[in-house]
Every structure is written in structure tokens, then in C-alpha cells.
Design a protein around this nucleic acid. Structure first.
Lengths: 163, 163
DNA sequence: TCCAATTCGGACAATTTGTATCCGCTTTAA
DNA sequence: TTAAAGCGGATACAAATTGTCCGAATTGGA
């Protein structure tokens, strides 16, 4: 059980897009370059973000990606669901209904207690991730690692990348 | 991102072992039979449970598996960690330190804010699972799906399987 | 005491799933 | 019309999952 790297990439990328000049898009190639990520595969993750309505994609020569809504309105959970899919992490296969001593169907109206416990754990996990936004991530990262020099360096880079 | 079926199997199997006559072992083959699981692969999960100290294995003609401690002292988290490994679900690859505008090492003494948020979510998930024991699972399952007839059927089966 | 039956354990092979790349298509602005 | 850019499908590659096998340990009886 492991979260794919694509989720980490997508969160970082959304952080970059949140800092881009409003209304301008950043091409996928530039985004890959910023973190030295494999361009072709990052493109796949960007497609997923686009389908989920987290980023908007503009095609054509002045195209690129931009956030589809405010950074404060995009949570880490939104991104996880976009990349990993919305299905539950734990999937009950109802083995209790098989074998020589099966639980009868009448007793299976409610889902199995084991599945209930796992789904409850997953719910608190989701709630925790839903409470953290891209905006907060950027604030924390800036506070911890931006001095004036690096801020300027970053703004120059993104001004060049955006179009 | 998905929890392997082995976790579900292991939880069910521990529930069966918790109901077995004290001090007697149940062979892996019988455990597989009870839920119609692939015997060879269930054996693999049982090995993992054994290595983690959740079940004890006795070899030889009177051998089999039994719980290594009280059912009330085995949590769902214990089983997840035994089967899936103890490593975190989210793994930060520190991409912030790469590319044309990297976060300098001095600013990376603390782990990345993104990783912090994911690890915090994982912590509440673990806490939730740690609060549920095999004993509670069995109580719930028995209350929901055992009538007198089925209880008798189950006890007959396990009396025959244990040795 | 030795042998046969039974059972777990660990190394090995196969299959499925996920990861990563590439290429042709459509769209857009100059 | 052309060059830049995202989209989706087809395809190779890697990894985890699933499954198999044979050896080691233990027991009970000859």
C-alpha cells in the first residue's frame, strides 16, 4: 500500500501554479522542468487534474495550465482523489459469505464490521487531508524557505515560464 | 493506492483463531478452507503474521497456527503493519531540492510541509485502526450474524479443524 | 531409535497491476 | 499556414502481487 509519486508531484505543481501570474498559463514542459520530473508522465498527472476540474488547460501556442479555482479552495484530498481515483482504499470482498460456514445473506444487510472499521479510519484520513489547502502549503513553504534572493529568483523563473 | 486483499484475509483469519479452543492450533489449510481462500497464498500472509508476532506457528503433525496474544490485544493496525509493512503510505522524494530554483539544504532541516500534512493524516488513520481490536470485531460479528444454529455449526467446524 | 506423516518456512516463478514513454490528433495564435 | 501546446490511445517497461515448489521441523507410532 503506497501513494503514487504522482500525488506528490501534483501537489507541488499546484503550488507553483498558485504563484503564477493570474490568468496566464504555464506549459506542462515548464512545470516538469521546475522539479526535474519526467515530462511525459507528469503530463498524464496534469490530464488527471484537468479532468477533475482542479486545473484548467488551454491548448494552442499560448496555452498551458492554470488553477481552475482559488488555491484556498483546493485541498490535498482533492488532489489525491484526482490522481489515485475516488474509490475506497479498503475494499471488502465479502469472504464472510463463502466457505463451509458462511454468514447468511440476511445477516449481511449491513456491511461487515471489519469493512466498517477500515472505512471509518479512511474517513478520518480524508477529513484530515480535506482540511489542508494549497494556499496553506504555499504559505508554510514560503515562510520556511524563501529569503528575498530566492523569492526573486522564483518570480523571475515563473514570469519567463508563463504566457 | 489500495490495501491488499491479504489484510482483509488476515483479519478474518485472526477472528477465527480467536474462537479456537485455547492452546490448540489450526492448520493453514483449514483456515483457507473456511473462507475459500487460495491456500498457498494465505500461507504467505500467515507467515507475515507469524514474523510480526501476532500468531504463533507450531510445526509437525499436531501443528498449526494460534494467536500469540489475547484477541483484545491485537488491533487492526497491528495486522495492517504486519501485512503491508511498517513504512509510511506517503513517501516524500524531496523534489523541492531539485530543478532550477531548488529549496536550499539549510531550509530543509524540517521535512517538507506537504509531507508533514500527509503524515499527519496517516497518523489519525493509524490511531483509528489502533483503537479496534480483534475481540471487538468478533463481538460485533457474533451479535449481527450468529443465531444458535449457526453458532453450533461454527463450533463444530472449529473443533474438527483444531488439533 | 528410526521412519513416515504432517505442517510451517523460505526461495523461486508467473501473472497482474502500475509506471513511464511515445506518437498522432486537435486546438490556438501569430 | 505554421509552430506550439494539450489530449487520448497504443505500447514498452518496472514492480508488486499472486501462486508454486521443495526443504526443515515436529510428532507419533513401528
Amino acid at each position: 500500500m503506497r501513494i503514487s509519486d504522482g500525488v506528490e508531484w501534483a501537489v507541488h505543481v499546484c503550488g507553483v501554479l498558485a504563484a503564477a501570474p493570474k490568468g496566464q498559463g504555464v506549459p506542462g514542459l515548464k512545470l516538469a522542468e521546475f522539479h526535474e520530473l519526467p515530462p511525459a508522465y507528469l503530463a498524464k498527472q496534469l490530464q488527471a487534474l484537468s479532468r477533475a476540474g482542479i486545473v484548467a488547460a488551454d491548448r494552442g501556442v499560448k496555452g498551458g495550465y492554470r488553477l481552475a479555482r482559488a488555491p484556498s479552495d483546493i485541498s490535498l484530498l482533492d488532489i489525491v482523489l484526482a490522481i489515485e481515483g475516488t474509490g475506497p482504499v479498503f475494499r471488502c470482498t465479502e469472504i464472510r459469505q463463502r466457505g463451509p460456514c458462511p454468514t447468511p445473506p440476511a445477516a449481511c444487510r449491513r456491511i461487515c464490521p471489519i469493512a466498517r472499521a477500515f472505512l471509518a479510519a479512511e474517513a478520518v484520513w480524508r477529513t484530515s487531508l480535506a482540511g489542508v489547502s494549497i494556499a496553506e502549503m504555499n504559505r508554510a513553504a514560503a515562510a520556511e524557505s524563501f529569503d528575498d534572493k530566492r523569492r526573486h529568483q522564483f518570480e523571475a523563473w515563473i514570469a519567463d515560464a508563463a504566457r
